[in-house]
Simulated scan of single mutants.
Amino acid sequence: MTQNYQMTDAEIDERFRVSGAKPVAFLLAGYAKTREAFSVHFNHGEDMFLTTLLEVQADKGRLVFDCSGSAESNRRIVLSDKVTFGGHPGGVPVHFSTGKAAETTFEGGKAFAVALPEFIIRLQRREHFRIETPRVNPLVLFARAPNGVLLKLQVHDISVGGIGVDAPELPEGVDLGVTMPNCHFTLPGDPKDLFFSATVRNYHEYESRTGQRMVRIGLQFNDLSNGDENRIQRYIAKVERERHELI
């Protein structure tokens, strides 16, 4: 197996983890719709074959995937207690594990089904340098949820490509792929707000240092001007410089 498939939970940054029944089903359904190819590993990683994700059956909580052309591989996979999938849809490494595989049929042909995983690891390419924003004088995002409710969310991290924001719970209507127009925030020391639309790319629950359950939402900037990107770059450089001066 490759190194990505051997990572332990402790080694995986939580922001790469897609968890929750609905986000997991949504993401895998997208891969199934485009018939993404994955390798499936079983028998403690000793055996594998290439497969295609075929369908997510959310009502049954299971994922259907194509069987192998090898009768022996098909026999051995149902004997394994754990099945691990790995692929590179869109050039982004994706990895998830689940329980036993069971024989089923799909569109008249033989296939396998497994329970939907608890989480998926999607090692997104880090095309932009990202920093955590200061807790003193934090950035605050203002946006409109799809139901029209005004959102005021503290920014946790920022790059030229997007931001991560924290919320006590996932706002109604906010989900993977949803785009929110007319978002804005103010950079400290900058008199002019940055206005943009943002698309939800990921979210996950976590426990804050005070023990409170929170949701962190990853948003991608869609339409920043070159000037606004430069303003963000200058802000990031300023924060980094101030942090190094404190060391």
Rank of each mutant, 00 (worst) to 15 (best):
T98A: 13
G99F: 05
K100S: 04
A101Y: 03
A101M: 00
A102H: 06
T104Q: 08
F106P: 00
F106C: 04
G108H: 09
G108C: 11
G108D: 07
G108M: 11
G108K: 05
K110T: 10
A111F: 03
F112P: 00
F112C: 06
A113F: 01
A113G: 05
A115K: 14
L116I: 04
P117G: 13
P117D: 14
F119L: 12
I120N: 02
L123V: 12
L123D: 01
Q124G: 05
R126D: 01
E127Y: 10
H128S: 13
H128T: 01
F129W: 09
F129S: 03
E132L: 08
T133E: 05
R135H: 13
V136H: 11
V136N: 12
N137D: 07
P138V: 00
V140M: 15
V140L: 13
V140Y: 10
V140K: 10
F142R: 09
F142Q: 15
F142N: 15
A143I: 02
R144V: 01
R144K: 15
A145L: 11
N147A: 10
G148T: 06
V149L: 13
V149P: 00
V149S: 08
L151H: 05
L153A: 04
V155K: 07
V155Y: 14
S159F: 07
S159C: 06
S159D: 08
V160F: 04
G162Y: 06
I163R: 00
I163L: 13
G164C: 13
V165T: 02
D166V: 12
A167L: 08
A167V: 00
L170I: 08
L170R: 05
L170N: 01
P171W: 03
E172G: 08
L176T: 02
T179P: 05
M180K: 14
P181E: 14
